[in-house]
Structures are given as structure tokens and as C-alpha cells.
Design a protein around this nucleic acid. Structure first.
Ligand SMILES: [Zn+2]
Ligand SMILES: [Zn+2]
Ligand SMILES: [Zn+2]
Ligand SMILES: [Zn+2]
Lengths: 133, 133
DNA sequence: CTCTTATTGACAAAGATTCTCAATAAGACA
DNA sequence: TGTCTTATTGAGAATCTTTGTCAATAAGAG
């Protein structure tokens, strides 16, 4: 008698911990490739596929935020689990988390006003930080 | 005596017109690949690279807006040249243009408040339209 | 009509991400 | 602690989007 269909049990591995840690060290958004390079530079022998898999899991679990960069690659960042948005430096990648209650309300309102349900949104602000000028 | 360095003169070609027209026909955001398929289905022998090139030009000229889809591909849409944002149906892709002066102000304010210059932003709202429910 | 050269299309090439699969090791249990 | 099941890993292949290359074509000026 096998269990009907429950999610496979997750396991804790040094690789996952390493990715999580490296992501935490980053000051802003980084790509899977960058993270892989960094990890290898620090002596890790982790595989690229594993970095991709782990990042995808973290994003799914809400422990990381992701966004698409200009050159078609996905960038990740360790984040608080509460809903928020980002202010990102175009030059150095420095990232600040920002919140705006009004904004959340506005977005949902716009959606429902036009007959759209299950509203969600993507809001990111870019600029050049003080240090980069 | 050759001209110092002016932009090469643009030429009007049936291919560009076709892409522009096909983009106008679409009800929402479409990818270069989709557009290429559509064009071929209508008998055109246009090359994929040309579709990419034309879309990039349109986006540059402000005649089309672009956004990154979930699966790492760029989507385009024919748009008005004035600054605006989008409300997009997750199912059928139906897209509405929306404006919000307050929002523009808010975004720039947040940036300057934190010492960021040359502010810009990405704001998109998603949902499921009435027709898809 | 002629000539210059921007543009095109077929194909190669680059990058990012995912898939495949045999080998490894986490975690449960005796 | 030792054994066993199977989630996870890493290396490379495969896939997919996008860009680059280049000879052939054709837009537009004269
Ligand atoms: Zn900066
Ligand atoms: Zn929000
Ligand atoms: Zn819809
Ligand atoms: Zn705006």
C-alpha cells in the first residue's frame, strides 16, 4: 500500500545551504550563473543545475524574489517573506526593499474596476544610487 | 568626403509593414516567435531574424512596449507613444492600457528620497479578465 | 534606369535554462 | 550504528530564445 500522492519529502543538503548563504551575502539581485561562479570561487564543487533548482525552490517558497533582467536572464535575491517591492541601482545592483500600502490598494482596485479577478502585480523602480554617481 | 557619423537612413519595406500590421492585430502581448508564425501562416516568407530586428526597432522608437514573460521570452505590443502601464489577462493575454499620474510621482519620489537619480520603473498589473471566467 | 547601401533571410552561434541519468548521500528505522 | 529507500546531485546533452554572419536583394536618391 503506497501513499496516494503526497509531496516527496525534502532533504537538507550542504548544497542548498550554500546557495541560500551565498544569496544572503549578495547586496542585490544576482543570476544563477553569477551565484554559481561565486560558489566555485569559494571552493564549492556545486553543479550549475543544482543552483538553478535551488533558486527556483527558494522563489517558490517565497524566500527569494526574482525578476527578469534586460538581457533575458532571471535574477534572484534573498527577501523577507512579506509582500514588498524593490528600488534597484542600475549600475551596481544595490537593492532596497520598499512598501506602499496605497499602491497595493490602487493596483487591486484598477484590476477589479476593469473586471479582472485574482489581481497581482509587478512593480520595480530603477535608478542610479548615490554611491554610483 | 563622407559624412562624419549620422544615423544610416531607414528604408520602408513590406516586411516592416507586415510586422507592424500583425502587431496591431494582436489583442495583447505576443512574442517574436508567435508573430513570425502568424505571418508565415498568412503566406509571408519573412525571416525570423527580421521579425526580431523590426520589433526591437519599434520598441526603441516607442511604437511598441515590451515586457518579459514568465518563461524568459520578450513579449511585444503595439502601443501609444505616451507613457503608460498595462493591465494584462493571465489567460488570454487581453491587455488594457492604464495611466496614473499619482503613481508616476510616487515612483520618482521614492527613488529621489533614497538618493537614486535617473528614476524609471516597471509597473504591470495582472489578473483574469471577465471573459476568461 | 543606375548605383549605393540598408535590409533581408537562411544558417550558425551564443546564452540561459532545463532535462537525463547514473552515482551519491540524507533521513528513517531497526 | 548499520541498512535501506529514494531525494538529490553533477556532468553533459538537449532545448529554447535571441543575436551574429554574410551573400543576395531591393529601396530610394539622382
Ligand atoms: Zn549603485
Ligand atoms: Zn505590491
Ligand atoms: Zn482573458
Ligand atoms: Zn509610469
Amino acid at each position: 500500500m503506497t501513499q496516494a500522492n503526497s509531496a516527496p519529502a525534502k532533504r537538507n543538503t550542504p548544497q542548498k545551504a550554500a546557495v541560500k548563504h551565498a544569496l544572503g551575502e549578495a547586496t542585490g539581485f544576482v543570476s544563477a550563473q553569477q551565484l554559481h561562479q561565486t560558489l566555485k570561487k569559494h571552493g564549492s564543487t556545486i553543479g550549475l543545475a543544482t543552483v538553478y533548482r535551488t533558486l527556483a525552490d527558494l522563489a517558490q517558497a517565497g524566500e527569494a524574489d526574482s525578476l527578469q533582467s534586460k538581457d533575458a536572464e532571471v535574477l534572484y535575491r534573498a527577501c523577507t517573506t512579506s509582500h514588498h517591492h524593490h528600488l534597484i541601482c542600475r549600475k551596481c545592483g544595490l537593492t532596497l526593499e520598499i512598501e506602499a500600502q496605497n499602491l497595493e490598494k490602487w493596483a487591486d482596485q484598477v484590476a477589479t474596476e476593469h473586471g479582472f479577478s485574482q489581481p497581482s502585480h509587478n512593480i520595480d523602480i530603477f535608478g542610479v544610487c548615490a554611491g554610483c554617481r
